[in-house]
Amino acid sequence: MNLTLKVWRQDGPEDKGRLETHQLSGVTGDMSFLEMMDVLNDKIIREGGDPVVFDHDCREGICGMCSMFINGEAHGPGRGVTTCQLHMRSFKDGDTITIEPWRASAFPVVKDLAVDRSAFDRVIQAGGYVSVNTSGETLDANAIPIPKADADEAFNAATCIGCGACVATCKNASAMLFVSAKVSQFALLPQGQPERKRRVTRMVEQMDKEGFGNCTNTGACAVECPKGIDLSNIARMNRDFLSSSLTGE
């Protein structure tokens, strides 16, 4: 396949950035999108240029590191996949592909396609945990039976990989899907109950402080979420948040 690539280049958060055009040949359908980017960088390096910087690590859809906005869609065409799981068979010979970073003021660009998502870490630090020390003397793991349906739903929420596609997709750059997934995981489990109200309050406060936008219920986030995190998590978080603010926690 021969492709025209329009790739976002930006030296750092202060730089304005621009799209740079590259022609690439010899791409095959079995390549993953990132392998195609490897081929591009190999070519750039051999020609004496500066390769395109992008984040990636596991290349199997689980670490949440890869983060490309491809032809106007977070993680590109296709549902339920991360950028690294996208294969070139989704494109055809002669296509022009535009590749940009996540755009959100809470995610400043580090370089080219790599952005800084440490705001997500700080939201988790604000309360995304159960306060239990490592003693080796906690309850036996089977002491509290948990209905399978609850455990499964908590698991589904917990599969969020923290990639930020939801934020990148939302026109308000809201982080509600990400935050609500973590809040829900704990809200659905007995272990999460003691800190339930405090957790949701603090996480939402931190989310606002980081400069993520408001949620206006368009649901675009869930469409582009590679892990199928459900919108019902947002509803659950809103209920919890409301009841926590009513009781003054």
């Binding site: 159960v130 309850l139 209905p147 399978k148 455990a151 698991f155 704990f186 489990l189």
Partner: peptide, 14 residues
């Protein structure tokens, strides 16, 4: 396993 369950790790259940 005890520690992880206490942390809220959602292991598979029957």
């Amino acid at each position: 396993i005890d520690q992880c369950v206490a942390q809220g790790v959602p292991f598979a259940r029957e």
